[in-house]
Amino acid sequence: MTASLFYLFAVGLLGASLFVVLNPNPMYSVVALVFGFANLAAIYFLLEAYFIGALQVLVYAGAIMVLFLFVVMLLNVQSDADHPSLPRVFRIGSWWFGALALVFIGLFLLLVGRSALALLAPSEVPPTQIGSVSQVGEALFTRYLLPFELASLLLTVALIGTVFLAKKKI
């Protein structure tokens, strides 16, 4: 049951992601990306990592995608549909494309293999606890405290920069 649901959401995720990169219309790409994030959140839910799944929806689908939509809407990004020919590099049949595809497939297999091996190794945390609020909080504030604080510093810098750029008259 869980396996078939996983395949359903995985196909949705892969399909949406492919649609994002192959579709010429940026608005459709954003919508497909939201759909992809929803599928990813569903996969997290299947793993009983509800907190991470909800974070995925709240942060990516709910907030960042809205900003993407804003940018695409307001900058009036032109659809590529009028000139459909892709750059030479991406044309199927060019040796470039084949080489690139091979590299990516190899990388993909490597990553999948690594995570499969990691799955086989017994975990110390009971499965229902992975991705719970307390687990995430503990990891963030002990082991990953420095990266966490650095990330918040980065956000603060970005925020100050935005205010500086937007409000020249202050």
């Binding site: 919508v31 939201v34 929803a38 509800y50 907190f51 909800a54 974070l55 929806v57 709240l58 689908a61 709910g62 907030a63 995608m65 809205v66 939509l69 719970s132 609020v133």
Partner: peptide, 17 residues
């Protein structure tokens, strides 16, 4: 869910899209 409130907030944030 063990994240009740958070789930509701997260899902209702989709509506704006």
């Amino acid at each position: 869910f063990n994240i009740g409130i958070f789930f509701v907030i997260a899902i209702s944030s989709i509506g704006v899209i």
